[in-house]
């Protein structure tokens, strides 16, 4: 589990790190949309350049980002192969029962580029933003929903607690699994029924532990005067700076570029 570095916060100092998380959240959203707007090579090149500049600005080593990609390499390969062989059109090569078409090739490459950009782009957000900032940004951006009686603060608090406890519970799962293995449990059995059955000795203690932790945490929060979002202040309130306004400008420019590339059919 430790190998998954995809999108885990990378601590360093950069313009991107200092940017308001709301900008980054909206920015990532726009970037993903723009990837689906553009459908020509000039568009991809533009998206690629934009991403490259962002990576440079983030001060996150490129190798670190690539290492994170390993986790999803399998899904990526399957998607590409699927597109490569399944798209009808002018045949290029064919062997056994499979045929690669010109359209298939072009579509597969575009799909691969899109996916890679999409994943790097969104992981760049989480790499440069702490989960807390992210939940704060979401809470702020969703504020209008409060009028519709959506419990915005509670949702954000839940997310932030979940993020804090995921690593703890993962470690705990590992520990329980090992302890049951020490009692002769077999987790490598082939049949699915056996496997599901063998999960019981892990899941029961894990749930009990999670409930105990939840209980403890609730008490600890109450002891520290937590009583919901009302009357609460923030240690790190989100306030837009000059750099955030500039970032919005850059973002708008990029989005317009992508849109015009599409409309002008480049």
């Amino acid at each position: 589990m430790k190998e998954i570095t995809l999108g885990q916060y990378y601590q360093t100092d950069s313009v991107l790190h200092r940017l308001d998380p709301r900008v980054k959240l909206i920015g990532t959203f726009c970037y993903i949309i723009s990837l689906f707007i553009v459908n020509s090579w000039p568009g991809y090149v533009a998206a690629g350049i934009f991403l490259a500049v962002m990576i440079l600005l983030s001060h996150v080593p490129f190798s670190y980002i690539v290492r994170g990609m390993k986790a999803i390499a399998f899904i990526l390969t399957v998607t590409v192969l699927f597109n490569l062989f399944m798209t009808p059109g002018e045949p290029l090569v064919s062997f056994w029962k499979l045929t690669v078409t010109r359209e298939g090739l072009s579509f597969a490459v575009k799909m691969a580029v899109r996916l890679v950009f999409l994943i790097i782009g969104s992981s760049l957000m989480t790499l440069t933003t702490t989960p807390t900032q992210l939940t704060n940004a979401m809470e702020d951006l969703m504020k209008p929903l409060k009028k519709l009686h959506v419990p915005v603060h509670e949702i954000a608090m839940m997310m932030s607690i979940a993020l804090r406890f995921i690593p703890i519970l993962m470690e705990e799962t590992d520990k329980i699994q090992k302890a049951q293995m020490a009692r002769g449990a077999d987790f490598e059995s082939k049949s699915i029924i056996q496997r599901v059955k063998s999960m019981v000795p892990i899941l029961v203690p894990l749930f009990i532990s999670a409930f105990r932790r939840a209980n403890d945490l609730a008490m600890a929060m109450e002891a520290r005067c937590y009583h919901g979002g009302e009357g609460r202040t923030r240690m790190k309130p989100l306030i837009y700076q000059r750099r955030d306004r500039i970032a919005y400008g850059v973002l708008a420019a990029f989005f317009c570029l992508c849109l015009s590339l599409r409309l002008l059919k480049f």
Partner: peptide
């Protein structure tokens, strides 16, 4: 092998 806090493995 008895792990730390082994009571957490009772199920």
């Amino acid at each position: 092998l008895v792990f730390q806090y082994p009571e957490h493995q009772l199920f």
